[in-house]
Design a protein around this nucleic acid. Structure first.
Lengths: 136, 136
DNA sequence: AGACTAATGGGAATGGTTATCATTAGCGTG
DNA sequence: CACGCTAATGATAACCATTCCCATTAGTCT
């Protein structure tokens, strides 16, 4: 009993979610993902979508961001690339991953200055991407 | 008709909320604020609390942060001090305002690099404050 | 094949937030 | 001060994302 965590079972639903997510490059809510899967003929329950997204997020296989409406939105990420933040278009949802170095240094120095420990930043930059800006 | 915005009426409820908020230095949810006011004998409806907090936030008189559960939490801020972010203790809720200069510069450069316009950062740093860390 | 149990999914429950609308009460005017 | 206009209030219902419940289904190991 060295490896406490057993890997999840391979189910049709779990791989459907994983492949849909890895095929998109913008953040989507659980509901949107559920709709998309349904519209492609996939038979899957909403509960399953929520559960699976959560477990994928905990496993670090996808990113979660809480948007301005307080909803959790998910997106696939290049794993193993370390911590990073996002630059998200508030019109089309297009998202870019941004290296965390600068911010992490800043967070650490701010935390040290105020004697906070265990500091983690929740950071997302919302803006308007080139395409949407010119499509006015 | 130069000044489109009329100032809100002075009501008992609005000042109760404003004074409670300015007397606290940690973020609180609308529900918590409602409870507190009720427990001090104030007669006030939940709807009013939500509405007033929103209008105060839009007016820039208080800060809003969406916490990890997707709830909106509010706190008074020193107005006129310009944009700033928060360092929040995830145990006791104690919050410190942090100047935004460094981050703003970073946000602008990231946005420029990826050709995003109108970029605004949503940033909150969660950690554990000195007091809570030593009260283990 | 059989057993064990994680995973599923439909529906109900939760909980924060917003909408509705009749009533109340600021506040400027005559 | 009395009057009127309408913003503000607040009880309640509606909303909606998310979680819970639990009987059923289906991976995975032997």
């Amino acid at each position: 009993m060295t490896e406490g965590a057993v890997q999840p079972r391979r189910t049709r639903q779990r791989s459907a979610i994983a492949s849909l997510i890895s095929a998109t490059d913008s953040f989507q809510s659980a509901q949107e993902i559920h709709h998309l899967l349904r519209s492609t003929g996939e038979v899957i329950g909403l509960s399953t979508v929520y559960r699976t997204l959560q477990s994928l997020a905990e496993a670090g296989e996808i990113d979660v961001v809480i948007n301005a409406d307080g909803e959790s939105v998910y997106r696939g990420c290049g794993q193993g690339r370390g911590l990073h933040y996002h630059l998200v278009c508030r019109i089309c949802g297009h998202a870019v991953e941004v290296a965390a170095d600068t911010i992490d240094r800043w967070v650490r120095s701010i935390a040290r200055e105020h004697r906070f420990s265990d500091a983690v930043a929740s950071l997302t930059v919302f803006g308007i991407c080139r395409a949407c800006a010119s499509a006015t």
